[in-house]
């Protein structure tokens, strides 16, 4: 499944990186601890988090994650937005909680396989 399909199916907000939604999703990773993501997330993962600052984009780019998905109606900081457009990493958002969106993402990915 591509990021663009996920956006449609889960009705996600696209804050940035509109031109980079054609990445293929390999799975998901849920964490707000940056070193945990650095160590354990996999290329192509959707990263579900409540961290909204620039370093999240730096990490997602270094790890070649598919996108960042902010929960609970959180909004990215301006510097994160700027950086995500430079790096081509989409920052998405949802009003749902981490628990709810992780459950939905898991189902979608499972069905797509």
């Amino acid at each position: 499944m591509k990021v663009s399909e996920l956006v449609k199916e889960l009705n996600l907000v696209v804050f940035s990186g509109e031109n980079h939604l054609n990445r293929e999703i390999s799975g998901g990773y849920v964490s707000d601890l940056l070193s945990d993501v650095m160590g354990n997330a996999r290329e192509g993962n959707v990263w579900i988090t409540l961290q909204t600052h620039r370093n999240v984009v730096a990490i997602a780019s270094l790890k070649e994650l598919a996108c960042i998905l902010l929960v609970s109606s959180l909004v990215p900081e301006q510097s994160a937005l700027d950086h995500s457009n430079q790096e081509g990493i989409p920052v998405l958002g949802t009003s749902l909680s981490t628990f709810e969106i992780a459950g939905l993402l898991y189902q979608k990915i499972k069905i797509a396989r």
Binding site: M38, T49, N55
Partner: peptide
Amino acid sequence: EMGFGAGMGLPNMKK
């Protein structure tokens, strides 16, 4: 608060 400080950085480097 930024999400650093899990104490996983050096172990990641080692790994």
